[in-house]
């Protein structure tokens, strides 16, 4: 009896170990997420579990969920995109300035999204065609995009009140600021959810998605298997650019203004969310689900700390530490770092 039970636990543990590393980390992060959720519910149930608060929480994570989902494509194919935040600001500026010219809303949205894809193509061009390392290339284009955003408006924000038609003003605000029935779930959360599911399917179920994994896992092998690596990785940067543009539109809408300084550091939050959810920064593994879980974790931590009156500077410290601990414990589950600790301390095992 006891042995069969032991066997079945061993079997379970074994099948858990057989899962791919990113899935394992997703399950692990999901566990932490639930634990945090329970923790904050226990500390301040009335405030934390209030419908309004949970809706706020979801709205707060819209930005880095969207950018993070786009970035996931870059990370999985073995790249990176530091320009996402800047490209988001640029999109917001372009969106509002187009609206101010009196163009219809849908035309502006499409043009703006094309602009986002264009920033991705530019990143891809420098990385894939000119061979600049992704980190450096997007570090540079980050300034280019941010600079362009500043140049376009001479450093001053654009307010949506300057849009000629008041009807368009109102429609535009609904995108990022509107809620179902006026006070329910924000539309931006629904847009985010739909977009994340869409990207999740693209990454998991399409040929291009498969090719992204192949490129991230072993670029040489992918090339020699007839995969057009340049086109595949270019696609990933375009998805990231597109995501930044969507995020830019939503943020400009919610704030009723486009700021050239918007989205500063969002790319880092997005990377943090992905890593927290279990995406490997080395490429080749991870799904959109990892990123979404990571983003939710960030949201729950921030929101919970806020409710309990922890000031925002301490929040930064805590978020940083949690990121470190989470990633370190992910490696620990591989059975690594106790050894290195003892070695570091020079403790001799008996």
């Amino acid at each position: 009896m006891a042995t069969t039970q032991l066997e079945s636990t061993a079997k379970k543990a074994n099948s858990f170990n057989k899962l791919n590393a990113a899935t394992r980390r997703a399950i692990y992060s999901m566990g932490i997420l639930i634990a945090l959720f329970v923790l904050f519910s226990a500390i301040s149930a009335d405030k934390f579990l209030a419908a309004a608060n949970l809706q706020n929480l979801l709205q707060q994570i819209v930005t880095y969920t969207i950018i993070g989902c786009g970035l996931t494509f870059c990370l999985v194919c073995g790249g990176n995109d530091l320009s996402a935040g800047a490209s988001m600001a640029l999109s917001g500026i372009i969106m509002v300035s187009l609206l101010m010219k009196g163009l219809p809303l849908w035309v502006c949205v499409i043009l703006c999204l094309c602009m986002g894809i264009l920033t991705g193509i530019m990143n891809g061009f420098f990385i894939e065609i000119l061979g600049v390392v992704p980190f450096v290339a997007t570090l540079a284009t980050q300034w280019v995009y941010r600079g362009m955003a500043n140049v376009l408006v001479n450093g001053a924000p654009l307010y949506t009140t300057n849009i000629p038609s008041e009807e368009v003003q109102a429609q535009f605000y609904i995108l990022g600021g509107g809620r179902i029935g006026g006070s329910g779930l924000p539309y931006s959360v629904i847009i985010t959810a739909v977009y994340a599911i869409f990207l999740g399917i693209v990454l998991a179920k399409t040929r291009t998605g498969r090719q992204i994994y192949a490129c991230g896992s072993n670029l040489e092998a992918a090339k020699l298997s007839g995969i057009n690596a340049v086109r595949t990785r270019m696609f990933a940067y375009c998805v990231s650019g597109l995501s930044a543009a969507i995020c830019g539109i939503l943020v400009a809408s919610r704030l009723s203004s486009a700021q050239p300084t918007a989205g500063n550091g969002y790319e880092m939050e997005a990377i943090a969310a992905s890593v927290l959810g279990g995406i490997s920064i080395l490429g080749g593994e991870g799904t959109i689900l990892n990123t979404v879980i990571g983003a939710l974790m960030m949201g729950v931590i921030r929101n919970g700390l806020n409710l309990n009156g922890v000031n925002s500077f301490w929040q930064q410290v805590i978020v940083g530490l949690i990121l470190l601990i989470a990633v370190a414990s992910q490696t620990a589950s591989k059975g690594g770092n106790l050894d290195s600790i003892t070695r570091f301390l020079g403790i001799k095992k008996k």
Binding site: A214, S217, N218, A221, L224, I227, G284
Partner: peptide, 20 residues
């Protein structure tokens, strides 16, 4: 180095040149 994506599974690698 250039034959297999070691971080991916057998299914993935078998079909890598066969996705079309």
């Amino acid at each position: 180095r250039d034959g297999l994506a070691l971080g991916l599974d057998i299914k993935y690698n078998t079909n890598m040149a066969h996705l079309q």
